[in-house]
Amino acid sequence: MSTHALRFAALGDSLTAGVGDPVDGGWRGWAALLAEYLGDGERPAQFRNFAVSGAQSRDVAERQAPLAREFAPDIASVVVGVNDTLRASFDIGAFAVRLDGVCAGLSARGALLLTACLPDPGAMLGLPGPLARPLARRQRAVNAVVHALSERYEAVHLHTADAAWVADRALWSADRLHPGERGHRTIASRFHGELAGRGLAHGPGPGRDPHRPPPGRSETLLWLATAGTGWVARRCTDLLPQLVGMAGAEVRHWARGTSARLDQRAERALGAALAAVTPDGPLAVAEG
């Protein structure tokens, strides 16, 4: 048995920071819920949440990972990528190298990794096809990299990009991009089930039923009129010019019957990214 209380570090963006699961004084989220049920039942786990709303893979690699390594966790969750897809600077190769480095550094120190694939934001927001398809390609690429690295580092991985997860409105908050309380509880419960089988979690785990009512139509409309407007404006400043260009390319290729070329281009970029992080490719060098 370990001589210290189990340590759990959470890295990532707003999903792991708890956005969508409000409590008095701020956000809670799936990672904090899960932390309450880790350990041997006698000594509570030590939990540090390094996740920051809006974080991209670069933020996780350069800011969060060094702090997490210093904490020396037994379990570390690394869930990031959606914000990368929403930036004009998106580069699946650079994303793969950064995430590989984060996973390598934590795994080398004995941490069991928790990962998850995520639905693409275009589908969640219900964007029209020419706008949604470029984002879908990006998120598929991100998920493919996450799958590859999860296998490489023997991570506990959740599949949360399936159609049933996306379609269940009861799981989502008013913004349709973050889980609501039920969604956060579901993620925590699923990870708990996997960890319990390894003797790292105790008890029945966090319940999936929310303690607060889900957002109603008026709350959703209020979010869209206030915080939602600001969120869209911030993202559009960076992404919109490129997204409009990508949408134009989608329409032109569709009109010419050459849409497959866009998929092939994305597949080539993904193939190169995966080649860099598969066991036969170069390993990322763990820092410090």
Rank of each mutant, 00 (worst) to 15 (best):
43 R>K: 02
44 P>N: 03
45 A>W: 00
46 Q>F: 05
47 F>M: 10
47 F>K: 05
48 R>F: 10
48 R>H: 14
49 N>D: 14
50 F>W: 09
50 F>S: 05
50 F>A: 06
51 A>Q: 06
51 A>H: 07
52 V>K: 12
52 V>E: 13
52 V>Y: 06
53 S>W: 01
54 G>Y: 07
54 G>D: 07
55 A>N: 14
55 A>K: 03
55 A>S: 15
55 A>E: 05
56 Q>A: 12
57 S>A: 15
58 R>I: 11
59 D>W: 10
59 D>L: 08
59 D>A: 11
59 D>I: 08
60 V>C: 12
60 V>K: 09
62 E>Q: 15
62 E>D: 15
62 E>I: 12
63 R>S: 14
64 Q>E: 15
64 Q>A: 11
64 Q>D: 11
64 Q>G: 11
65 A>Q: 15
66 P>I: 03
66 P>T: 06
66 P>W: 02
67 L>I: 02
67 L>N: 03
68 A>E: 06
69 R>V: 09
70 E>G: 11
70 E>W: 04
71 F>R: 06
71 F>P: 00
72 A>P: 00
73 P>K: 03
73 P>E: 00
74 D>E: 14
74 D>N: 13
76 A>T: 08
76 A>Q: 02
76 A>F: 00
76 A>V: 06
77 S>P: 09
77 S>Q: 08
78 V>E: 08
78 V>W: 06
78 V>Y: 03
79 V>G: 01
79 V>Q: 00
79 V>D: 01
80 V>H: 03
80 V>P: 01
81 G>S: 09
81 G>R: 04
81 G>Q: 07
81 G>T: 08
81 G>N: 00
82 V>Q: 12
82 V>I: 14
83 N>A: 10
83 N>T: 10
83 N>G: 06
83 N>V: 04
83 N>W: 08
83 N>E: 10
83 N>L: 11
84 D>Y: 05
86 L>R: 05
86 L>N: 05
87 R>E: 12
88 A>E: 12
88 A>I: 05
90 F>L: 11
90 F>Y: 15
90 F>D: 01
91 D>P: 07
91 D>I: 11
91 D>H: 13
91 D>V: 07
92 I>V: 15
92 I>S: 01
92 I>H: 03
92 I>F: 08
92 I>C: 04
93 G>C: 05
93 G>E: 11
93 G>S: 10
94 A>Q: 13
94 A>Y: 01
95 F>M: 09
95 F>N: 00
96 A>H: 08
96 A>R: 09
97 V>G: 09
98 R>I: 06
100 D>P: 08
100 D>Y: 10
101 G>Q: 09
101 G>K: 06
